[in-house]
Amino acid sequence: MKVLAAMSGGVDSAVAAARAVEAGHEVVGVHLALSRMPGTLRTGSRGCCTIEDSTDAWKACEKLGIPYYVWDFSERFKEEVVDDFIAEYAAGRTPNPCMRCNERIKFAALLEKALALGFDAVCTGHYARVDQDEAGNYELHRANDWAKDQSYVLGVLTHEQLAHSMFPLADVASKAEVRAEAERRGLSVAKKPDSHDICFISDGDTRGWLAEKIEMTPGQVIDETGATVGSHEGANAFTVGQRRGLKLGTPAADGKPRFVLEIRPKENTVVVGPEALLAIQEIRGIKISWAGEPIAEVGRGEDFPCMAQVRAHGDPVPARARVEPDQDGIPALTVTLDEPMRGVAPGQTVVLYQGTRVLGQATIDTARALERIG
């Protein structure tokens, strides 16, 4: 097959490309330039998409003896990921930019261009597996190493995208195995630290970064009863589940700490309350997509058992889910959790599993606490 290897400049993508070459595929490496003003050097393991990363990707391709190109996707990345991130926070939601990047850049824009150029598949260093069922339908599954599994952030992929996706690291036992393989292959990125946090906020200060992008207006902090207990400098800087930095003027009656329960951007109000009210048992999701063909219960409008996960490395929780039209006739996903999940926020993504298989995902529109259901 003719394979386009997405080269981030990290060890995972380098080893994935090496495995694709070893498997006999015709491989071409490409590094995505996602910023028009990339930093020259990353800070430790923070950030990515720097000039250093581009250089490391080129060195890996040179070592593997494959062509190397840089594609400028910076304008689309800004529009589809960065601007979306800002807009979501401005609306009081908590977005996941990695989901948006996979959905709209790596497996939409990149795959679209790759197929137009005659490539059969896009190869990445994600830890996940693509399988086929007896009918030949493509399915997305967790990787063997659950500690590094990245199927959650790939939950936005469609059946058509899975048909052209290649994840050579699906069967590795650990990240240590990947680093050891990179060293054996003579790849210079073998000991390069993993990137983490949001790639376009390299110093990790999301609140400070947002303060420069969103107009912050002082407002009230109220408790779950509606009583004013403090003030804030900008509601958009808070996230559901936050405890630190509230600076409340009125202590709770029981003396226990309070947490952010809700952000109301239209009222410019932050709602706080006891930790118990963070225990969510019902989630309503919109913008549903299925990772492969949807299971039969979806088409029949029946509820089905599943495991629900709302963070990339969060623990999945047993649940039952059902798809039904909302008031506007648009499909909505209702997920009822068997066990409460703490601090779920609108804007996050809920990904559903059965066993190791990813069923699909939805953007969380509302999340209801135990005490508020009924």
Rank of each mutant, 00 (worst) to 15 (best):
L210E: 07
A190K: 14
S174R: 01
A180W: 02
D171I: 07
Q161H: 07
F167C: 03
D194P: 09
E181R: 02
D171T: 13
S151N: 11
A170Q: 10
R185H: 13
A173D: 12
A182T: 09
A190F: 11
S165A: 15
R185N: 09
E212V: 00
F167D: 07
E183H: 14
A190Y: 15
Y152C: 11
L162Q: 08
R185W: 15
A180Y: 02
D203P: 02
D194G: 13
I201K: 07
V189L: 04
A176K: 14
A190S: 12
R207C: 05
Y152P: 12
G208H: 01
A190L: 07
L162T: 09
R179L: 05
D171W: 11
A211I: 00
A173F: 07
I201E: 00
I201S: 00
D171P: 05
M216K: 09
A163N: 06
M216G: 03
E212R: 11
A173W: 09
M216P: 00
K213N: 00
D171L: 10
Q150A: 07
K191I: 06
P193Q: 11
R185D: 03
K175T: 03
T206M: 14
K192S: 10
D197E: 14
P168I: 03
E160R: 14
R184V: 11
Q161N: 09
D203Q: 04
V189A: 05
V156P: 09
L187R: 13
V156F: 12
Q161V: 15
D197W: 12
Q150L: 04
E177G: 08
T217C: 01
W209G: 04
I198D: 13
Q150P: 08
D194M: 06
S202L: 06
S151E: 10
Q161K: 14
E215F: 01
A180L: 09
S165N: 03
L162F: 08
W209N: 05
L157S: 11
R179P: 03
R185G: 02
D194A: 15
L210G: 03
A182Y: 05
V172T: 13
E183M: 08
T206W: 08
P168Y: 01
K175S: 12
W209H: 04
R207M: 07
H196P: 00
W209A: 02
